[in-house]
Amino acid sequence: MANDKEQKLVRVQSPNFLPEKELKNAPILEVSHLGIDFGGLTAVDDFNMVVGQTEICGLIGPNGAGKTTVFNMLTKVYQPSRGTIMLAGKDTHSMNTIQVNQAGIARTFQNIRLFDKLTVEDNVKIGLHNSINYGMFEGIFRLPGYWKEEKKSHEKALELLSLFDMQDLANDYAGSLPYGAQRRLEIVRALATNPKLLLLDEPAAGMNPSETQELMDNIRKIRDVFGIAVLLIEHDMNLVMGICEKIVVLNFGKIIAKGTPSEIQSNPEVIEAYLGKAATTPGKEA
């Protein structure tokens, strides 16, 4: 009861509140006044952004600008110090990482985080975990539920892997894959959790130009096939300008520009932030 009331209160106060019938056309993600402090350091401040239901958006900025920190707040790896995150019209304030994933955000990591000692197929099946429907005892005693659900998830995993033409790697260990394939597998695993919004943290890092080109096509394909939104962090400007419909530029934790690719490319502040940064600290990455 008390919880119910609180929820309503938040909703009424929130400028992002929408009645249920309008949710269909509502943005999938609405972030307002988001901020986080680490001790005395304000890593991100007053971050505002809206992502449409099938939009591909870019988040760019120099190293250390706070891009990954935004992802970590969206997925509740960090609890934000300020602001609200509305996912499909729901405030994620009280959710943890797991609940945010179940509510529809999946992500990849800048420093790849695969289950190295498991096979490619098992990595994807862990992504499918919450859509596989049998428990521990059915698993141990190999009851009918086990066979039925394992067959289904095996097929689903191979289907998802075939998106990136990786079905032949299903039995390889994830840790033994080449770099580019590891990045692709992370995307497949994220997709397996059946998200509404996919967050990609530097998906093209370490890829060669032809792999990057393929990745661009695949990101578009994912959006079209699954009908989901994509928010990506990327340093490769060809990729960002090529596929993003909307771009947000972050510098020192603050948004310095928002707009279409052409607007961003001609924005003097953006050009300065990039050139200024590049001149002082070349490529330091966490």
Binding site: V77, I98, Q102, A106, F109, F115, L118, N123, R189
Partner: peptide, 13 residues
């Protein structure tokens, strides 16, 4: 999965 990468496991729900 949790053993191999706890944060990734959490991100997978």
């Amino acid at each position: 999965g949790i053993r191999d990468n706890r944060i990734a496991a959490e991100a997978c729900g």
